[in-house]
Amino acid sequence: TIDEIIKALEQAVKDNKPIQVGNYTVTSADEAEKLAKKLKKEY
């Protein structure tokens, strides 16, 4: 679900690790936030 994706992003940001979500690779908190907002609009 979208919530699980967002939790995974938040965890990756805390661990400061890049995370791959679908076609996106998120490497920073800023990118994670942008991706989360984008995904919320889509779903």
Rank of each mutant, 00 (worst) to 15 (best):
A32S: 01
Q11E: 10
E10A: 06
I2Y: 10
I19S: 01
K40D: 04
K37G: 07
K17G: 04
L35R: 00
G22Y: 07
Q11N: 05
A29F: 05
Q20N: 12
A12P: 00
N16F: 15
V13Y: 08
Y24R: 03
I19R: 01
N23D: 14
E10I: 11
N23T: 08
A32E: 00
A8W: 13
K7D: 06
V21H: 04
E33P: 00
P18C: 05
K14Q: 10
L39I: 04
D30W: 14
L39Y: 04
Q20L: 06
T25G: 05
G22V: 04
I5C: 10
D3C: 14
A32M: 06
I6E: 00
L39W: 01
L39F: 04
L39E: 01
E4T: 09
Q20R: 14
N16Y: 05
E10G: 04
K41S: 13
A29V: 08
A8K: 09
D30I: 13
T25R: 07
L35C: 14
V26T: 05
E33G: 07
K14H: 11
I2D: 02
K7Y: 10
I2N: 02
Y24F: 12
E42P: 04
E33T: 06
T25E: 08
I5A: 03
K41M: 12
K14M: 12
E4S: 10
N23F: 07
S28V: 04
A36Q: 05
L35T: 02
V13C: 09
P18E: 05
V13W: 10
L39C: 09
A32P: 00
E33V: 08
K38T: 08
A36D: 01
K41A: 15
K37P: 01
P18S: 09
V21K: 00
T25K: 08
I19W: 04
E10D: 05
I5P: 01
K17R: 12
V21G: 02
K40F: 10
N16A: 09
I2K: 02
K40P: 00
A12N: 03
N16R: 08
Q11L: 08
K40G: 06
K40Y: 10
D30N: 07
G22N: 09
A29C: 10
V26S: 02
K14F: 14
I6P: 02
Q11S: 07
Y24L: 09
D30K: 13
Q11T: 05
E4D: 12
D3H: 12
T25L: 14
D15G: 05
I2T: 03
I6Y: 04
E4P: 03
L39G: 01
K37I: 14
K7P: 03
N23V: 12
D15N: 10
D3V: 13
I19D: 02
A29H: 04
T27R: 06
E31Q: 07
V13I: 15
V21Q: 00
N16I: 03
L35D: 02
Q11C: 03
A32T: 01
N23L: 08
T25Q: 10
K41F: 13
Q20T: 15
T1L: 11
I2V: 08
L9G: 02
I6M: 06
S28D: 11
K38V: 07
T25A: 08
T27H: 12
K34P: 00
Y43P: 07
Q11K: 09
I6C: 06
L9N: 01
P18T: 07
E10H: 05
A29L: 07
L39Q: 01
V13M: 14
K37Y: 06
D15T: 07
P18H: 06
L35A: 02
L35I: 06
K34M: 13
I19Q: 03
D3Q: 13
A8T: 07
K38D: 10
P18R: 02
